[in-house]
Amino acid sequence: MHPLCKMPGCTDRATATFAQVPLCELHHDEIWVETRHYYTKHQQGADRDTRPQYRKIDSLIHWSRKRMGRLK
């Protein structure tokens, strides 16, 4: 059985992962477009609002939890 997409509010079947977080095809594509844009524009360290899709799942990503001090 395939897990569901972890994007809040999405009930589609996960078909891919981003940073080991299961996502449906639509949200996976959105995250990658957003990520490429973020790093292509050299906005590293820029305002977090520049990655709204990533921010929806950052609490599920290991290195984000560690950076936020939420790693147990």
Results as ranks from 00 to 15, higher is better:
44 Q>N: 11
2 H>N: 12
23 L>K: 00
46 A>Y: 06
43 Q>I: 13
2 H>Q: 12
57 I>M: 05
69 G>C: 11
47 D>N: 10
42 H>W: 08
12 D>L: 04
49 D>C: 05
68 M>T: 05
64 S>Q: 13
23 L>T: 01
30 E>W: 07
43 Q>R: 13
67 R>H: 12
62 H>I: 15
34 E>D: 06
46 A>V: 02
70 R>C: 05
8 P>G: 09
10 C>W: 01
29 D>E: 07
51 R>S: 07
64 S>V: 10
60 L>P: 00
6 K>W: 01
9 G>H: 09
7 M>Q: 01
4 L>Q: 10
54 Y>E: 02
68 M>W: 14
54 Y>I: 09
7 M>H: 01
14 A>L: 06
38 Y>K: 02
66 K>L: 12
72 K>T: 08
55 R>A: 12
19 A>N: 12
12 D>I: 03
57 I>C: 02
27 H>F: 06
8 P>W: 05
58 D>V: 04
51 R>A: 07
50 T>M: 03
10 C>Q: 04
32 W>Q: 09
29 D>F: 07
32 W>S: 04
11 T>R: 04
9 G>E: 07
68 M>K: 15
40 T>M: 11
69 G>I: 07
62 H>F: 13
36 R>W: 13
66 K>D: 06
42 H>K: 13
15 T>H: 07
17 T>Y: 06
65 R>W: 08
21 V>G: 00
10 C>R: 01
5 C>W: 00
51 R>P: 01
72 K>E: 09
18 F>Y: 10
22 P>E: 01
1 M>Y: 06
25 E>V: 04
33 V>E: 04
70 R>A: 11
46 A>Q: 09
36 R>V: 05
7 M>E: 00
5 C>S: 02
39 Y>G: 12
30 E>N: 06
39 Y>I: 09
12 D>S: 11
64 S>H: 13
31 I>G: 00
22 P>L: 01
